[in-house]
């Protein structure tokens, strides 16, 4: 699957890091999230979709 983050929207709330650890990462003072794995396996789809659902600025997309 393909994970994309709209970095113009991202406000570093950090919900995604909790929902999909290993896919997203954030340092204490980072302004935007880092996508560690842009093409995780299908076994992570539920986690990434959960991350997208909990993103307060709707910046995450879980694509095909």
């Amino acid at each position: 699957m393909k994970v994309t983050v709209d970095k113009d929207r991202c406000e570093a709330h950090g919900q995604c890091v909790m929902a999909a650890e290993g896919v997203f990462a954030l340092g204490d003072d980072d302004d935007v999230v880092t996508v560690l794995d842009e093409t995780p396996g299908e076994d992570r789809r539920a986690d990434v979709e959960h991350a997208a659902a909990l993103c307060p600025v709707a910046a995450i997309k879980a694509g095909d």
């Binding site: 570093a12 709330h13 950090g14 919900q15 909790m18 954030l26 204490d28």
Partner: peptide, 13 residues
């Protein structure tokens, strides 16, 4: 606090 609060939340959870 940047992402610190998210980390505290994870710790509490």
């Amino acid at each position: 606090g940047g992402s610190r609060i998210a980390k505290y939340r994870r710790k509490l959870m």
